[in-house]
Design a protein around this nucleic acid. Sequence first.
RNA 1: GUGGGUAUAGCUUAGUUGGUUAAAGCGCCAGUUUGUGGCACUGGAGACCGUCGGUUCGAAUCCGACUAUCCACCCCA
Length: 440
Amino acid sequence: MALITKRVYGAEDVLPKDSYKWQFLEQLMRSEASAYGFKEIRTPVFEHTELFQRGVGDTTDIVQKEMYTFNTKGGTSLTLKPEGTAGAARALLEHALYNDGLPVKVYYITPCYRYEKKQANRYREFHQFGMETYGSESPAADAEMICAAQSIFDRLYIGDKLRLELNSIGCPECRAKYYEALKEYFSQYKDQLCETCLSRLERNPMRILDCKSPVCSEIAKGAPVVLDYICDDCKEHFEEVKSLLDSAGVKYSINPKIVRGLDYYTRTVFEFVTDELGAQGTVCGGGRYDGLIEELGGQHLPSLGFALGIERLLALLEAMGAEIPNNDECELYIATMGKRSQSKAFELLAQVRSTSMHAETDIVGRSLRAQMKYADKIGAKFSLVLGDNEIDSNKAELKNMESGEKTEISLDGRFLNEFISASAHNSAKAVFLNKEDKKD
RNA sequence: GUGGGUAUAGCUUAGUUGGUUAAAGCGCCAGUUUGUGGCACUGGAGACCGUCGGUUCGAAUCCGACUAUCCACCCCA
């Protein structure tokens, strides 16, 4: 296929027949974030490359090999955002949002870019929904964050299909001790560890715990566990987070092996994982990053957040056979016969559409029969045929496309009210059916 | 970056010892008389069989390279 008609590798189109799913999810996430008191922040898709090097971390795979970096004509190095947190944190500092009062609670929906090999549910351009809280060290902030993520899944009826895995990786002080213990332990097996793990030994020994190689993972089983090494403060913090989650009725399991791939994490880390999506089971991941704002040159401002992969969430809903409500459906199709009825149709449609209802008529010049077929194809709930008879008598038959029932409707000033009362009954029924479907 | 799989109409596929105008279902468009969809029937549009090269009288079919794509490792959303 010619290049100009081929999308770039790893990028996806959302086609007209599917866009309602995205709109539904976005709307749901916005309203949930709002319910928790978070406001939207929108930041550019690109930032100065240095921001990500500093914010995400020089040792991470993301920075080392996955960024879309380019130079502008002026010679500035820019990078397409590989994740959402750094940009939000930058904006917080640049606009001194912490002066508006703490905590600062924001959410975002943004495309992200990572140059890596495409796979099922992993794309080079993908979309994240994320939430961030700045300026609270309290475990209550951690618990609120996790509850918010859980609420979104609950509202999609998949709350019980995802495992919430929780861990604490401690503060920099206790983690240093843990690193030493890990290095000491893994050094005994230097001759058996895989190559990548050997290099991790110095750089970031926690990653070895996550290695999929049979040898390494076998060795990792006997490795020291973070939770045994974190200091009393971190331990107490973690206990309090768990206790608040218990109060909220949020179920979780402790997984001491969760190691987030971004350098900025401290203390609480968590993931929402599913087995339904093959190798890409992490739908949502997040945690606390108390050092991030300082790292970017700000004051000490304890913060935390999570990011949720929209493509993965959609894929999961698809895998569950969930039916996403579609608000794109046509309420009324007006079939016309000739110029006179076309003018009348435009007059009536203007009224219906003024209420934001979806209504259509023929714009390609089809026969009456073909127009009816088309009305059926697009799923119109009601149809109306407009010919000389109707226009002369100022009355038409409104047809319920599902039941086939016809009722008389006036074409004069009463038209809109009569149509609304006729269609209201029908759409109420549709909502009810959707709710029923979700229960299975 | 490393492995493995696959490439035939918009989609799903048939075409399996190389042999005349490449086939079907779905979808799309039109029609089945006088003004009404779903079913059925009829017709139509739509494929340089991923690309280039090779073997051959002859290649969708065999060989090679390239490209695209999928899956897995890695990592992550």
